[in-house]
Design a protein around this nucleic acid. Sequence first.
DNA 1: CGGCGCATGTAACAAGTTACATGATTTG
DNA 2: CAAATCATGTAACTTGTTACATGCGCCG
Lengths: 188, 188
Amino acid sequence: MSLPHAILTALLEKPSSGLELTRRFDRSIGYFWSATHQQIYRELGRLEETGQIRELPHEAPARGRRKEYEVLPAGRAELAAWVAEEHDPKPVRDALLLRLRAAAVVGAAGLDVELRRHLGLHRAQLEEYRQIEQRDFPADRADRENRLQHLVLQAGISLESFWVQWLTEAAAVVAADGGPEPDPRPGA
Amino acid sequence: MSLPHAILTALLEKPSSGLELTRRFDRSIGYFWSATHQQIYRELGRLEETGQIRELPHEAPARGRRKEYEVLPAGRAELAAWVAEEHDPKPVRDALLLRLRAAAVVGAAGLDVELRRHLGLHRAQLEEYRQIEQRDFPADRADRENRLQHLVLQAGISLESFWVQWLTEAAAVVAADGGPEPDPRPGA
DNA sequence: CGGCGCATGTAACAAGTTACATGATTTG
DNA sequence: CAAATCATGTAACTTGTTACATGCGCCG
């Protein structure tokens, strides 16, 4: 269960309101741990209840309805402990791979379009990551926080590169024989 | 929602009982779509209710409590339709990447052990995939079903290779400075 | 015939998703 | 002040997880 820890990390990087967190979970943190605003508000409630975060008194107190949160020592301790815990990697669960396996049985009709569409999406994501890399990790100011964050970004880049490469290959294979599939029950 | 389609695919490859399916979801299909026996029985019930599969009359009818299922035409049609549908790839959600990002804030104490442990797990998985490849895709008997299944396995191999490579790099970086982390609240 | 393992399930819960609700603030 | 939008939140549902329950057959 990682959502609370994702939120703690985000709040340590910068104290935020629920909506600001939601926005950051659409980029940045969200690139490897996505969450909707409903999840975030629910979890903020729990984290406050259990004394891991607290609401900040407002800097501009007059106009008041945004609630900014900051991490308390208990929250930081919990996060540090979680970083060192044993957690087995979750088994891969990818619908596209499943669809390819299904296509081996019922035919790949229509799948080539999807493969090319996914190829486009992954190309775009890869391009975005590369721009972030150029912007945020330019030469080698390699302080330790920076090096770790760069590692994470590099994982994203490698993963997207893999998909681009694999989808290119897969699209070629499916195009070669995808159209006329052998349906053993043609009338069904 | 892909579990029913995973089950339909498995049953088309070979009619099976709930327990047999469970076993196949621990290898084979399970390499990219895992499921527990509770999920499987629940879903088998639904698929039977909606007329996509049916129970087979037993071949060895005397000793009778295993229920074997086969796919009906409606199920095959549903699966073929699903293969061609548009489904956006699910955003990456990886706890280890999140932990690295957290480590950038609270320190990487203890994380090096985890990185090396994961490295071992991924090395083992990669080795297993390579053996399957040698066993099931030897020279080039490239009928169409075979080529698609090989593509899926190659995806698995590439993904595990990526992790092995990335974890090696990550372990090196974390080992270089992981020990003495800068905790801004040392007493917490 | 008593215990072990097989096979199928139920129940309770946790996490994630989708749709909707409410109040406050700005803007025309 | 009406409408749009911002910000927070509820409710209902689906999917996935964990723990337990039941009946059967085999084996010592």
